[in-house]
Design a protein around this nucleic acid. Structure first.
Length: 922
RNA sequence: GCGCGCUUAGCUCAGCGGUAGAGCAUCACCUUGACAUGGUGGGGGUCAGUGGUUCGAUCCCACUAGCGCGCACCA
């Protein structure tokens, strides 16, 4: 084995072998465990958030596979309607072309080409990240087979009266020229104005003043509303005002919606351009006067002077004209929330258009119940409340999009505009008796991307066919996703799953946090702080990184700043850390926090960990190869028994971590055991046996066996998080360790119960460790090199101490770097010494000019101070009669014992202080 | 406006009703035959604030402050 772990060559080789060997396919044996991947969008490449999520899913999959589950991790990608269409359109624009020039068919063809590119990059990334998905089942949401399923769902929902078409007020994006669902609207608070406008009264003198933030919509006003109890306006209800600039009269209506305290207490009502006004209009039978075109210019319903004006130009002109007529009472600054499209960032316009909707309440009710009844559980549970809140006030879902990239809506129209929903044009003709002479035209619109996503857990498994996969893997075991798409996706999958499968789509929803950069900033192209996971795995030069981060910026003026920040953070580019280091780092981020800060320092930490493990394995193999390693007749030392016991502890922690989806705890348990127990202690302890001429062959065999056996189990426990290094080392140890199988992937995950805790070895080893630590501390604090052998005397050594000393002397000598200690007789006076305490025994290191008495006195004083503080706290606690009465007896006993120990310790430290002082002075 | 989350060492974060933890950073010592991507030791925290429950609160409850995030029709 090489001296340093170099992942690059190993990882590619191993993954290719796994895949070619079919190790990712479900075993077909055992209980089912299944996860469907949240399909990444084919808009580009995977980002750090994907790497994080994939690490979690892969770890869960590998863990369950090893635990004997029939494990399926279903892969796939999403066509991501708007997002992908925008990416390709931007590419076209950069090349001086436009979508309109190309036409629908050619454009869609172009997007398919892009899909191949993006999908290929994504697949490559996932392979490089070690994802054990069943590639045989790879699916794209817009595959023809998937379209059939989407159509099937649409038609069935329509048959059940749960999909309808109608002219409704929707969120309209005038830039993308499509309708959006409520979820795709981001409300941003902006500084605007509140204009107080005068609407002259009809058949009376004077004005009614209305307050509005959107004066340009006044040309679509259908009424003015006041509160029914508002004394100021009560007498005007039922009368009329004249709409300025347009020659129309508007009724004055009363509605409790109006807040008399806001503005003037009079509201202009524009039912075709405001959601509230729409509702109010319905109540009062007001006409819908739509005054805007699809690109948000004024249409022909307005007076000629304003026709064709863009909405913002129209605002200026209308305000100028009103002002000229003296109809602006006043203008006050006003904060308002402006709706913008989440993709385009364009200001949206409520617009009356023909759209398709899902009648959602009947679907929502069972989905709410499923969570209430615990058939689906959110982890962490706190997200349940967020889910309920949204589900209880859910509104009909606008599913039609005026885009080209997506699932065409399975509806056909005849020349008279009659609409036929069917699985195909042929079916429409057959069912409705329309012969070939009648022309039918399919609906131009496509479906919201999330419509097909909602079907993902069953569409990927073969629905509507009753496939074996569907039977076996539905409901899936757990959905792993971010909180940002609980509404978009989780809730909708629940509704559709219950509707079409009559069961929940997943039993658990594990909601993880979102990956941010080292400063807590969201990672985005425009901020220039994104890192391609593969650039951490394989490394990247500064130059290449700079180019990657600044190419194709939407805001080119950001370039200089991005370059500066990048040079500062990565002066040498990024080193190649390997997949396992990245995965371990990501696993450790999987705490319950919402914001997870990604930091290169943490990757480095786990790169070092991999190297540590690699070298520990080198040590083990170096000492195992060519030796008899069989446990039969071997002698197992304290250290051997201890490390196995600690291994059991680690395995318990790992089990608990997986059970709670706390991969950070899994990673920590592995890290701490591997580094701080196996390497720091056990490997060092083993040297005391293996490199000793006095140790018996049986003892050496016991140690060699334990080394290889512990390593082999550790590798299996590590495999879900660090698949590559564990496989690579395992291949080298498996023969020596007597392990079965070709790949670590298909071995059994070690269970905590198979490795017993050794209740005797642990405290005994504790004594050895405390002895070593005591001496090391003296050495450390006195700047004595560790390898400098010291003379050591023991005072007050009891029978237990002497017993341990005799048995474990070889450990102490080696790890503490001492000569064999000599126990002092009861009356024997020690020379001037530094002291470490171990129970009631004193470990004495003669100073002999090595140690300054003054330094030792300082050290003693420090210990004494700490012990005295602890003691006084404990005395207060135990002095409280209520404590003894109410606290559990074991706690009281423990504190009682600790009190005694502290008193002994203080006595010893005081006595030693006096001794050193006296000897120093003499 | 309603709701949720966070506040623990210089930094990033675990933790927990019963003596405060890790990694990084920092300081000192160490080229020891697995590893300098290393070893050993040290320093560093009134666990945001106030009040309550409790024998005992960093942990549970209430309130306050700061930060962050959802949801929301006030024109």
């Amino acid at each position: 084995m090489d001296k340093a772990y170099s992942p690059a060559e190993i990882e590619a080789r191993i993954y290719a072998w796994w895949e070619a060997s079919g190790f990712f396919a479900p075993s077909g044996r055992g209980p089912a465990f299944s996860i469907v991947i949240p399909p990444p969008n084919v808009t580009g490449t995977l980002h750090m958030g994907h790497a994080f999520q994939d690490t979690i899913m892969d770890a869960l999959s590998r863990f369950h596979r090893m635990r004997g589950f029939d494990t399926l991790w279903q892969p796939g990608t999403d066509h991501a309607g708007i997002a992908t269409q925008m990416v390709v359109e931007r590419q076209l624009n950069a090349a001086g072309q436009s979508r309109a020039e190309l036409g629908r068919e050619a454009f869609v063809e172009r997007v398919w080409q892009w899909k191949e590119t993006s999908g290929g990059m994504i697949a490559k990334q996932m392979r490089r990240l070690g994802a054990s998905v069943d590639w045989q089942r790879d699916v794209f949401t817009l595959d023809p087979a998937m379209s059939l399923k989407v159509t099937e769902v649409f038609v069935r929902l329509h048959e059940d009266g749960l999909i309808y078409r109608g002219k409704r007020l929707v969120n309209w994006d005038p830039v993308l020229k499509t309708a959006l669902s409520d979820l795709e609207v981001v409300a941003e608070e902006e500084q605007g104005s509140l204009w107080h406008l005068r609407y002259p009264l009809v058949e009376a003198s004077g004005y009614l003043v209305v307050a509005t933030t959107r004066p340009e919509t006044m040309l679509g006003d259908a009424a003015v509303a006041v509160h029914p109890d508002d004394e100021r306006y009560r007498h005007l209800i039922g009368r009329k005002v004249r709409l300025p600039l347009a020659d129309r009269e508007l009724p004055i209506v009363a509605d409790a919606y109006v807040d008399p305290a806001f503005g003037s207490g009079c509201v202009k009502i524009t039912p075709a351009h405001d959601f509230n006004d729409y509702e109010l209009g319905q109540r009062h039978n007001l006409p819908l006067i739509s005054i805007m075109t699809l690109d948000a210019a004024l249409n022909d319903s307005v007076p000629p002077a304003y026709r064709g004006l863009d909405r913002f130009a129209a605002r200026e002109k209308i305000l100028a004209d009103l002002d000229a007529r003296g109809l602006i009472e006043r203008i006050e600054p006003h904060k308002l929330t402006v709706p913008r499209g989440d993709r385009s960032n364009a200001i949206l316009e409520p617009l009356l258009t023909d759209q398709w909707f899902v009648d959602i309440k009947p679907l929502a009710a069972p989905a709410i119940r499923a969570v209430q009844e615990g058939r689906v559980r959110f982890v962490p549970e706190t997200w349940t409340g967020v889910y309920y809140d949204w589900m209880h006030k859910i509104r009909d879902w606008c599913i039609s999009r005026q885009l080209w990239w997506g699932h065409r809506i399975p509806a056909w129209y005849d020349a008279d505009g009659r609409c036929y929903v069917a699985r195909s044009e042929a079916e429409a003709r057959r069912v409705h008796g329309i012969d070939a002479s009648v022309a039918l035209r399919q609906d131009e619109d496509v479906l919201d991307t999330w419509f097909s996503s909602a079907l993902w857990p069953f569409s990927t498994l073969g629905w509507p066919e009753k496939t074996a996969a569907l039977r076996t893997y539905y409901p899936t075991s757990v959905l792993v996703t971010g909180f940002d798409i609980i509404f978009f996706w989780v809730a909708r999958m629940l509704m559709m799953g219950l509707k079409f499968m009559d069961d929940v789509p997943f039993r658990k929803v594990y909601i993880h946090g979102l990956i941010r950069d080292q400063d807590g900033q969201k990672m985005s192209k425009s901020k220039g702080n994104v890192i391609d996971p593969l650039d951490i795995v394989d490394g990247i030069s500064l130059q290449a990184l700079l180019e990657k981060r600044t190419a194709g910026l939407m805001q080119p003026q950001m370039k200089a700043g991005i370059e500066r920040a990048t040079r500062k953070q990565f002066p040498q580019g990024i080193a190649a850390y390997g997949t396992d280091a990245l995965r371990l780092c990501l696993a450790r981020l999987a705490t319950q926090s919402r914001d997870l800060r990604f930091d290169m320092a943490k990757v480095e930490e786990y790169r070092n960990f991999c190297n540590k493990l690699w070298n520990a394995a080198r040590f083990v193999l170096m000492n195992a190869e060519g030796h008899d390693l069989s446990p039969a007749g071997a002698e197992f030392s304290l250290a051997d028994r201890w490390i196995r016991s600690r291994l059991a502890g680690m395995l318990s922690r790992i089990d608990a971590g997986f059970a709670e989806y706390r991969l950070d705890m899994v990673a920590n348990a592995l890290y701490e055991f591997t580094w701080h127990e196996f390497c720091d202690w056990y490997v060092e302890l083993s040297k005391a046996v293996l490199q000793s001429d006095e140790a018996s062959a049986q003892a050496k065999r016991g140690t060699r066996h334990t080394l290889i056996n512990t390593l082999e189990i550790l590798l299996r426990a590590l495999h879900p998080l660090a698949p590559f290094i564990s496989e690579e080392i395992w291949q080298r140890v498996r023969v020596n360790a007597g392990a079965q199988g070709d790949t670590i992937m298909r071995t059994d995950f070690p269970s905590a119960s198979s490795v017993p805790v050794d209740a005797q070895a642990e405290p005994e080893m504790r004594w050895v460790m405390d002895f070593v630590l005591g001496v090391r501390q003296i050495k450390g604090e006195m700047d004595i090199p560790l390898n400098r052998k010291l003379e050591v005397l023991l005072q007050n050594a009891g029978p237990r101490d002497l017993g341990y000393l005799g048995r474990h002397l070889h450990y102490l000598v080696r790890l503490a770097g001492i000569e064999p200690p000599r126990a002092l007789a009861a009356a024997e006076v020690a020379p001037i010494c530094a002291v470490a305490l171990l129970g009631s025994m004193e470990i004495l290191v003669p100073m002999k000019g090595l140690i300054e008495p003054a330094a030792e006195l300082e050290r003693l004083a420090k210990r004494l101070r700490k012990a005295e503080i602890d003691l006084s706290k404990l005395e207060t606690k135990l002095g409280n009669s209520q404590f003894a009465k109410n606290a559990p007896p074991d706690i009281v006993a423990k504190d009682q014992q600790r009190l005694e120990e502290l008193r002994t310790e203080i006595g010893q430290l005081s006595a030693q202080t006096a001794r050193v002082r006296k000897l120093k002075d003499s």
